[in-house]
Computed example of a mutant assay.
Amino acid sequence: MNILITGAAGFIGAHTALRLLKDGHQVTGLDNFNDYYDPQLKRDRVRWVEQQVGHFPLQRLDLADSAGLERLFAEIQPQVVINLAAQAGVRYSLENPKAYLDSNLSGFLNLLEMCRRFPVQHLIYASSSSVYGANQQTPYKVSDNVDHPLSLYAASKKANELMAHSYSHLFGVPATGLRFFTVYGPWGRPDMSPILFADAISQARPLKLFNYGMHQRDFTYIDDIVESLVRLLDKPPARDPLWDREQPDPSTSMAPWRLFNIGGQRPVELKDYVSTLERLLGRQAQVEYLPLQPGDVLNTCADVSALENLTGFGPQVPLHEGLEHFVQWYRSYYAGARS
């Protein structure tokens, strides 16, 4: 297939690009290399991909650049678009909300316009488990109500789902939204807990555990995310003639649109997560217990039965195994600079 990946120098984007290139697909990447975190990590991810598969066509482009996006679509005419570009981070959305407007809303709208004007066979886009917000009943099901987001980041992701639905309904854009649950693994973002915690443990600095370490997170290893994506490529949604307007299922539609959870289905308390990292790093953490932070969801756990029914696959890598792979990469990449 001819595939465009946005956010291709990001964590999930680079892993996805590598897998698709290895599988023989024609892949073009897009990334704006912004400085939300050190762009050198993004450049190193691209180099890592190219070391294994050779040249990786990658455009330095922002989704907010509608003219540049139009030129790219006209040139490559993608069959499938995988949108992984976004302004990430729950807590950062409290500090810089406009970044989420520019990237997650305006940028996504530009991408939807391109998928309409240059019709694609399938648009797959990243949503987030954060959309479940104030929901307390777990495991989260894609049929659950998500009307109470707890952060602007979560609200922007729910908005993406609604925007995609409108384009599916009005223009027939086949769109699949994926609610990712706490993705981790080698080449992860430095603002996420694996690197933050590994840094703190390695450098004997206080490790901050919010909500006094009582959070539960449904950690999902990166290879399981990529496998799910790959299996969805040739399975675009169709209009559901049995969709009931009087009792609507929020995860499907009379339009060619649907939602899936991708999660490990094994929620772990953060205290136990830290203990696993301590064992793998061979050092004890100095833990600082702090109260719940604004925007944080208490617990996450995914019901992935809908995804498994369609693809025959569900996340399989247990946390201890995934964290072992992460720690091996962490030690290799930072080469002792953070120890």
Rank of each mutant, 00 (worst) to 15 (best):
R205M: 10
N135M: 14
S156F: 00
P97W: 02
M254L: 15
F197V: 02
N309W: 02
G89A: 08
D38R: 08
R71A: 14
S305F: 01
V49H: 05
S151Y: 07
G213I: 07
P78I: 00
L105E: 09
L232C: 06
E308I: 06
Q52S: 07
G314W: 06
R45S: 07
F210K: 07
L298G: 10
D224E: 01
K42R: 14
S168Y: 06
H215I: 02
P139G: 01
H215D: 05
A8P: 04
D240M: 06
A17R: 06
F118Y: 10
I12W: 05
L58I: 13
W243E: 01
P39S: 03
D31H: 02
P248F: 12
I225W: 01
D224M: 03
Y37M: 08
Q216N: 11
P236M: 03
Q26L: 12
Y221Q: 05
S130K: 10
D244Y: 00
P194I: 03
A335H: 12
M1A: 14
A159T: 09
V268L: 15
L101S: 05
L150N: 04
S168F: 11
S251P: 04
G264V: 05
Q265D: 11
I262V: 13
Q59C: 07
T138E: 11
S275M: 12
G68F: 00
D218C: 08
A126F: 05
D147M: 12
K141Q: 14
F326Y: 14
G312H: 07
L84Q: 10
Q52E: 13
I3P: 12
I222T: 09
G282S: 04
Q247S: 12
Q265G: 11
G295M: 09
G29P: 01
L30V: 13
F313T: 04
L233V: 04
G13Y: 07
Y153C: 07
L229P: 13
R45M: 08
M192Q: 15
V81F: 03
P97R: 01
Q59I: 13
Y36L: 14
V287S: 01
V304E: 05
L196Q: 12
M114S: 02
E278R: 08
I82Q: 03
W187F: 09
P149C: 09
V27G: 10
T176V: 11
Y212M: 11
F260V: 06
H320K: 14
G263C: 08
S127H: 08
L21W: 00
A74V: 01
L242M: 15
S106K: 09
D303V: 06
N83T: 00
Y100N: 03
Q316S: 15
Q59E: 15
A126Q: 06
N135H: 12
P39C: 04
K141F: 12
A285R: 10
P256N: 03
L277D: 02
Y330N: 11
F210T: 15
V304M: 04
L152D: 04
P250I: 09
G188S: 15
Q51C: 14
G24P: 02
G89E: 07
S339H: 14
S93T: 03
V173S: 01
T220A: 07
S66P: 06
L84Y: 05
D249H: 14
G314T: 13
V46M: 09
C301A: 15
V268R: 12
A9I: 07
D218N: 02
K271S: 14
A285V: 11
S332E: 14
R245S: 15
D65L: 08
P194F: 03
E246N: 13
P139M: 04
V131R: 05
Y125I: 00
